[in-house]
Simulated assay, not measured.
Amino acid sequence: MTTELLFYHLETRPLEAVLPVLLEKTLQRGWKAVVEVGSSERLEALDAALWTYADDSFLPHGVVSGNHQDAGQPVLLTTGAENPNAAQVRFFVDRAVPRQSDGYERFVYMFNGHDPDAVTEARGIWRQLKDTYMLTYWQQDENGRWSKKA
């Protein structure tokens, strides 16, 4: 089975608003997730954002610590390549680059449409991985809704 790779082009809503919704949908499907972040600083900021993104919601998650408790977390944040919670979905955010597919049902690559370098990188990743994965491209409209473009 080929791993799906979904590209999410963020334009109207920031990562901190979009990622929690996608993580909740992942958990509703009975899947676990790993979120790979491009830097330690952004990992800390994203961790804080996931705890406070909504007053009426709770998104259980942790940061990879290398101990046995990581396996029980439904969502883990990391800057590395590990998958200690046996996640079915791996998110790549803040310039983290997809590089493996073993054991995953789906990859989600999210990039900032207002950062020209991030857009150029996303195009290059699309070209590089189009023969390896089932790719789809999702873009936000002016209301923040997603539409499938490719």
Rank of each mutant, 00 (worst) to 15 (best):
V64H: 02
Q140D: 11
R99L: 11
T12R: 10
A96H: 08
D56F: 07
R106F: 04
L15D: 00
K130P: 04
L19I: 00
W31D: 14
W126P: 03
Q100P: 04
R99V: 11
S39G: 03
L76N: 03
T26M: 07
R95S: 14
D47R: 13
A81S: 15
F91Q: 00
V97W: 08
E36L: 09
G72Y: 12
K148P: 10
E82Y: 02
E24G: 02
L15E: 04
W51Q: 12
F107V: 06
F92V: 08
W126R: 14
G103Q: 08
V35C: 05
Y8M: 04
N67V: 07
E142N: 09
A45E: 15
L129E: 09
E142Y: 08
T132Y: 06
H61C: 03
Y53V: 01
L27Q: 09
G80W: 06
W126T: 06
G62P: 01
G103E: 10
F111D: 06
V93S: 00
P84G: 02
F111A: 03
G66I: 01
P98S: 11
L59A: 06
E11Y: 07
F107H: 15
D70E: 01
V63K: 13
N83A: 07
L19T: 00
V18R: 00
G72D: 13
L15K: 00
F111H: 11
R145V: 11
T52D: 15
R106A: 10
L5S: 11
L5T: 09
R106C: 08
V97I: 15
P60M: 02
A96L: 09
H114N: 13
V89P: 00
Q100V: 12
T79R: 07
Q73D: 01
A49W: 01
F111V: 07
P98M: 10
D115E: 11
Q28T: 12
T12M: 05
L27R: 13
